[in-house]
Amino acid sequence: MPQLDFSNPLMTSKLVWLVIIFGVLYFVLKTYALPRVASVLEQRAARIKADLDAARDAQAASEAALAELRAATAAAKAEAQAAIATAMQEAQKKAAAEAEAINARLNAQVAEAEARVAAARDAAMGALRSVATETAAAMLARLGLSAPANDVAAAVDRAATQGGR
């Protein structure tokens, strides 16, 4: 096995070269190569952290905006409902007032009409009494009876009050 042939002078020289090459490699990596990688990784980590922070801030801002929006919506809703309620009340009041006015006018008209009807009836009733008295007097005359005009009128009146209603 050539690996165990330690009498070979190349074995020793190979190890000397190994130490030199390994040392140079170690120095180059430690001094130049690895710090560069470290700085790139650090920059990336910082960038990611900054971006994450920005995203978190934006999220907080959006949440605040959302809350504001919700509050504004709620306030607007309440306002609108209050406006609707007052409008409805006013409308109802107005309607009630109008209805009352109409009722009053109608009542007045009804009362007037009733009065007119009563007057007409009274007039008619008055005319009827005189016609009835005259008729009664005429009938009495036909029957050959005579009675004082006052008594006939009183009797007609009595009959009228008894017969009416």
């Binding site: 190349l10 190979k14 000397v16 190994l18 490699l25 990596l29 560069r36």
Partner: peptide
């Protein structure tokens, strides 16, 4: 003359590749 073997040659190649990867790659 300096006892530089093919083993050492491959060490140099490996070292060169490592440095190339870490420096050129980055």
């Amino acid at each position: 003359a300096v006892g530089f073997t093919q083993s050492n040659l491959f060490m140099v190649i490996a070292g060169g590749l490592i440095v190339a990867l870490m420096v050129y790659g980055m």
